[in-house]
């Protein structure tokens, strides 16, 4: 018959191992908890959102932009309104198309507050090399948006674009076919110019609900 002598040989080593293992587990799990904002954010993208919810950052108000009509402006000019921002490049046939369709739909659904000048939709292009006001205008026309409620714009300088990308948490990687891989989301900026929320593609209903809630209060 089998006797259980396996653990008898070194009781202190067993005890030490148990203590060390439990310690490691506690430290490790706590560390992982910190590294994931309490197990909520496994990806950079989610981390960004968690951070935005906790402490809404101010968006760079002074970056010079030019819109589809060639008009120069900055984000500071939009203060006092709720601004929905997305990042696109006009030749993009994948994600940006979805974003464009979402914005067009939102422009229709939110026609009333837009008419009252309380909401602004803004698509910012990160393709400084190719996009021009004319390209932006045709991008808007493609989605039959184009009213004053939805503007498209390009930053005038690389540095300005970098500051915007940094503030909104946008990563853009050129792919090998002359296009870009980039993260797509709808960003909500409040009337004081703070980034207060980030929504996924396909969360149009949530965007609308959030805005209606804010405007009602």
């Amino acid at each position: 018959m089998m006797t259980t002598s396996d653990h008898m040989s070194a009781p202190t080593a067993v005890l030490r191992t148990v203590v060390l293992t439990v310690g490691l587990l506690l430290v490790g799990v706590a560390g992982l908890g910190v590294a994931t904002d309490g197990f909520h954010a496994f990806t950079t993208e989610t981390a960004r959102r968690v951070a935005v919810h906790r402490n809404p950052p101010a968006v760079p108000a002074t970056v010079p932009l030019v819109n589809q009509d060639g008009v120069h402006f900055t984000l500071a000019d939009l203060q006092g309104k709720w601004v929905l921002v997305d990042f696109v490049y006009t030749r993009c046939m994948t994600i940006c198309t979805v974003l464009g369709a979402d914005f067009a739909q939102l422009e229709r659904e939110l026609a009333e507050p837009i008419a009252q000048d309380r909401i602004q939709l803004l698509s910012i292009s990160f393709d400084l090399a190719r996009d021009t006001p004319a390209e932006l205008a045709s991008y808007l026309t493609r989605f039959r948006g184009a009213g004053p409620g939805w503007q498209a714009a390009i930053p005038l300088t690389d540095d300005g674009l970098a500051r915007l990308e940094d503030a909104f948490g946008i990563t853009v990687i050129p792919d090998k076919m002359g296009g870009y891989t980039h993260n797509a989301a709808i960003h909500l900026v409040d009337p004081t110019g703070r980034l207060v929320d980030i929504f996924d593609l396909g969360q149009r209903d949530q965007v609308r609900a959030a805005l209606q809630r804010e405007l009602a209060s």
Binding site: F39, H40, A41, T43, E45, T46
Partner: peptide
């Protein structure tokens, strides 16, 4: 469990 905490996944 991962999905429970990060529904985005």
């Amino acid at each position: 469990l991962i999905n429970a905490y990060d529904p985005e996944i």
